[in-house]
């Protein structure tokens, strides 16, 4: 089994917190159960609808290959077995920014990932952010529970 970078179960708090701006894409704000992470994520709701209150399992991994070989970054068609098989919604992107935010002496770290323009912001304890590297290729895998 391949090592994942992050795994947790999230619950959708709100759809489009700033109002709906795009037809097919919605921004969800979700909170995780285990690590108490706050996440904003753009999701193509046309092919994978989300509603407030939905619970889903989210996994971040650096490759889909089950043997753990790193991803090439280029399109390689073929029906190989992969990590994605167990999930409903998978996106591929790049980590482009890690930042900090301190409020009332509590330091939170944010990681920002862009899945071809669909953005994710994951806010939480700095120790989680330490697992990630800048410019890392990331896969987000989602399965409703």
């Amino acid at each position: 089994m391949v090592e994942t970078l992050f795994e947790d179960i999230f619950r959708v708090d709100e759809l489009d917190p700033d109002g709906k701006k795009f037809d097919r894409v919605s921004r969800i704000s979700a909170r995780s159960e285990q690590f108490d992470m706050l996440m904003f994520l753009d999701i193509n709701t046309e092919i994978y609808p989300m509603r407030t209150g939905d619970k889903f399992m989210m996994v971040l991994a650096s490759t889909l290959n089950l043997d753990g070989t790193p991803d090439s970054g280029y399109f390689a068609p073929g029906n190989k077995k992969s990590l994605a098989d167990k999930f409903d919604y998978v996106m591929q992107g790049k980590l482009y920014r890690i930042s900090e935010e301190s409020r009332e002496k509590q330091v939170k770290a944010d990681i920002f990932v862009s899945f071809g323009g669909l953005l994710m912001q994951l806010k939480g304890d700095p120790s989680i952010a330490a697992r990630f590297e800048l410019d890392q290729k990331l896969f987000i895998l989602i399965r409703k529970v």
Binding site: I47, A84, V90, Q92, G116
Partner: peptide, 19 residues
């Protein structure tokens, strides 16, 4: 042209305009 990995891998392979 090198075709990148699609931004959406599942349920359907979709690329975005930004790509």
């Amino acid at each position: 042209i090198d075709l990148p990995t699609p931004a959406l891998v599942k349920p359907v392979e979709l690329w975005t305009g930004k790509q």
